[in-house]
């Protein structure tokens, strides 16, 4: 117990870093994913071609490679990020692609008649998107978004590769130093706690959308 209390502060500070990466990725990637999802469903072919290429690139290469590329690769051509910004940047690029695909699927499942019905009521395109389409899309995509959000918590541990002190790294350091399994077990427990909280919140959001079908 005493040992746990001794290592807990460093684990919690690592968890804080994990949460920061998680938070910024979610806050930027989800709205950006909606916008790119709209772009993917647009009739303007050059735009959809570019977006499809971007999605293919981001989903088709390992996130680990993308992290290394941004932090160690880009400085070679003069683009320098600090560790933290590099991590956030790579995560946003990667997760936006996944969210864009999820929202594209959601957008395409809203019937054309909904747009027409809004059109004859003379709602503008953005009013239609905001009040009619987005709520229906959100309801459809919540389970898939939930999967990605939980993945993100765990994926954030990849930042150790560019030397960021996140939760996993904190546990790893303590285990290596003190030759005990306790820190790694604690790390597991903290991840489980974080995903449990996110699962709970997602469940709440889902039930809020269950008032209509």
């Amino acid at each position: 117990m005493k040992y746990i209390m001794k290592i807990l502060p460093s684990l919690l500070s690592g968890a804080g870093m994990t949460l920061q990466i998680f938070f910024w990725t979610i806050v930027v990637s989800i709205p950006l994913g909606i916008v790119l999802g709209l772009g993917l469903t647009s009739e303007f072919k050059p735009l959809t071609a570019i977006l499809k290429f971007y999605v293919w690139l981001m989903r088709g290469t390992p996130l680990l490679l993308q992290l290394i590329f941004v932090f160690y690769g880009l400085p070679i051509i003069g683009i320098i990020f600090n560790r933290y910004d590099a991590a956030i940047f790579a995560f946003i690029l990667n997760y936006t692609a996944y969210f864009a695909e999820i929202f594209r699927g959601g957008l395409q499942s809203v019937p054309k008649g909904q747009y027409e019905s809004a059109k004859v009521l003379r709602l503008t395109y953005w009013q239609t998107i905001r009040r009619i389409v987005i709520p229906q899309v959100v309801k459809i995509v919540i389970p898939s978004i939930g999967n990605e959000v939980i993945n993100l918590i765990k994926d954030s541990s990849l930042v150790y590769v560019i030397g960021i002190g996140d939760l996993l790294r904190a546990g790893n350091v303590a285990t290596a130093r003190d030759v005990t399994l306790v820190p790694l077990l604690l790390v597991g427990v903290i991840y489980l706690l974080m995903t449990a909280i996110v699962t709970y919140i997602l469940g709440k959001v889902e039930s809020r959308y269950n008032t209509w079908k």
Binding site: Q114, S117, A118, K139, W212, K213
Partner: peptide
Amino acid sequence: DFQLFPNL
């Protein structure tokens, strides 16, 4: 098919 808005 009426096309009411299901979310409202």
